[in-house]
Amino acid sequence: MLLDLPGRPCAMIAPEMLETSRDRAPAPTEEPRGCLFALSQPPLMIFLAVIGCLLLMASVHDLFLL
């Protein structure tokens, strides 16, 4: 167990973590968005639901009414 005593520096913070120089380019904050992000969009889901319903109705019609 680590204790933060007055004469002893905290071992949890490394010197590299305290460096705040701007020599390097900052890391990108936005991650690339993939396929699952596109599927979570409401217009796309509504479109896919309508197409799915049309296919379901066509298959039920072919199976039971013809």
Rank of each mutant, 00 (worst) to 15 (best):
L2F: 11
D4K: 12
G7C: 10
G7I: 03
G7N: 13
G7H: 13
G7S: 14
R8Y: 11
R8W: 13
P9E: 14
C10M: 04
C10F: 11
C10V: 01
A11T: 05
A11I: 02
M12P: 00
M12F: 15
M12H: 12
A14W: 13
A14Q: 15
P15S: 08
E16L: 12
M17K: 13
L18H: 04
E19W: 07
R22D: 10
R22K: 14
D23V: 10
D23N: 09
R24W: 04
R24Q: 14
R24E: 14
R24P: 00
A25V: 08
P28I: 07
T29S: 09
T29K: 15
E30C: 07
P32V: 10
R33E: 15
R33T: 12
R33H: 05
R33V: 14
C35Y: 05
C35M: 11
L36W: 10
L36A: 13
L36M: 13
F37P: 02
A38I: 10
L39P: 01
Q41I: 03
Q41F: 02
P42T: 05
P42V: 04
P43D: 03
M45I: 07
M45V: 05
I46V: 15
I46H: 06
F47I: 14
F47E: 01
F47A: 15
V50P: 00
I51Q: 04
I51Y: 02
G52L: 05
L54R: 00
M57A: 14
A58C: 03
A58L: 04
S59E: 06
V60A: 14
H61Y: 10
H61M: 04
H61K: 06
D62T: 03
L63R: 09
L65E: 07
L65K: 03
L66C: 06
L66D: 12
